[in-house]
Nucleic acid binder design. Structure first.
Lengths: 271, 271
DNA sequence: CTCCGCTGTTTCGCGGGCCGAAATGGCACC
DNA sequence: GGTGCCATTTCGGCCCGCGAAACAGCGGAG
């Protein structure tokens, strides 16, 4: 009962957001649409200004105008707003993509990702993607720092799950040992039994000043870029930890409603 | 040669982003599309999850999923990334919408706006909107702090413009007097001869540590909410000034590539 | 050079999907 | 009950999007 052409166009636009550059063949494979249809849809989006056909690179990519399709929506939690600039700064300096994930019932949802900023990264932009709590670095980094009561509620929920990625919830001792270690280390990594195997994620919790865990901050890299896992951890764990602390500080300043800043006006230069 | 249904849907989606809630009648008036067509497009977008039909409020609005249409794009300048959290914090506390604008040739372009966050605001989300340099608060706040050389280049360009909003460029003395006053005050406001008359904007420059002006930060309010213009200025100018300084500090920390933070790891708590 | 396999793009005639005037149903106010 | 105005549904016609097929433009292999 709805308009097929529009559904297709929206799917194409979503797909275009998943990669920096998209060939017709890739889009054809992912959307199952006939190529002439894709060309027509892409031309339409291009004439409307949402898409650019980069002939040098041989493919299409979204343009700046796509932001106008969502500019009316930003109800991101403040922790995402506070964290996004830090995430971008890390990616600029260290190249690998960084993401911020928030808890959602029995998993984590990625709310911000610098994948598009990361030139070397062939990863898909993973905004709005759901991550399992027990096998993903960003899930573990959150769960491990949750207070015991809330944590046990979530583990209870996970035990009812059929998802094999939640299997660890049935081995409580093993799970608690893992969480304890995450807490001691101050970071978590993705389980090695889970896809994709050629990359890994290091994640740290973002804590409120009160100590409550709000979100997690994760960096993803290709294993092949480092001699060992240990190398990557030694390099990025301190960076992520200090960024998490900086986000936490920004956050408390922001939510304190700028009372201090307003009072200190007399200290300001004359502008 | 392009697909009409898609063009229409994209226009509707853009319009939906301009107001928190949109009735069919409003959309009909703005897009000139027949109402049955609108209903069909909206149902399509709703089934795809981009739009919600809020029957209580009697209208449609974009949903969280629209972010997936632009999640692959964030090449915002760092100053926008650094400033957005502060803009949101101001709007949360003081309700009025706040925007960040960047220079673009002979005008300013709004790159971020908290209009959607501002419940009281019936203003349109103005992201990507162009503002005149000489009549708008955000333009003057930028231009006044530009170094003399660059400033004169822009004034030269403006003098060639036919736009009546750029008329002041032909009265150099008057213009320079205005800019001098903006510099002394540390803020600018929108010219009173320009639409919309029922609101006003107070804007301050965002300066790099080097002193170079990067962008402007503006707050818009209804005149009727205050006894006088002076009341509004006394209240919001200090807030905007301190926020601009905070953004500037965040920015220099972010672009210093976090070298300091990384080295201070030993000071961190154990997480 | 020619063939091949792979791209992205254009052609074109068929058919069904989108279109919108008109009708319907719903709600608020007089 | 009447009168607007609203969102939504109906339905027949016509147009417009559809996609198989053909075309064109590579680069590499034979």
């Amino acid at each position: 009962m709805s308009i097929r052409a529009i559904e297709r166009a929206m799917n194409v636009l979503q797909e275009l957001n998943l990669q920096p550059i998209n060939t017709i063949a890739q889009l054809h494979a992912r959307t199952k649409l006939p190529k002439p249809t894709l060309v027509r849809i892409l031309r339409t989006l291009e004439e409307a200004g949402y898409v650019e056909n980069d002939t040098r690179q041989g493919g299409y990519h979204v343009s700046a105008l796509v932001t106008s399709l969502s500019s009316g929506f930003h109800k991101d939690p403040l922790v995402v707003e506070a964290g996004r600039a830090w995430a971008i700064a890390i990616t600029r300096k260290h190249k690998w993509p960084v993401a911020i994930a928030l808890p959602d019932y029995d998993g984590m949802i990625i709310r911000f990702s610098t994948v598009p900023d990361s030139l070397i990264s062939p990863f898909h932009s993973t905004v709005n993607r759901r991550l399992c709590m027990l096998t993903r670095g960003m899930g573990l980094a959150y769960l491990a720092f949750l207070d015991v009561e809330d944590r046990d509620v979530i583990i209870g929920i996970l035990q009812k799950s059929e998802d094999p990625e939640n299997a660890l919830s049935h081995h409580r001792d093993e799970l608690l040992r893992l969480l304890k270690q995450v807490r001691e280390n101050g970071y978590a990594t993705r389980s090695s039994v889970v896809e994709p195997r050629n990359s890994n994620t290091i994640a740290v919790p973002i804590l409120a000043k009160s100590g409550r865990v709000l979100a997690s901050l994760g960096l993803t890299y290709f294993k092949s870029a480092f001699d060992s896992e240990q190398d990557a951890r030694e390099r990025y764990v301190p960076i992520l930890k200090s960024a998490a602390i900086a986000i936490s500080e920004d956050l408390s300043r922001l939510s304190s409603s700028m009372a201090i800043d307003v009072n200190s006006t007399e200290l300001l230069p004359a502008f």
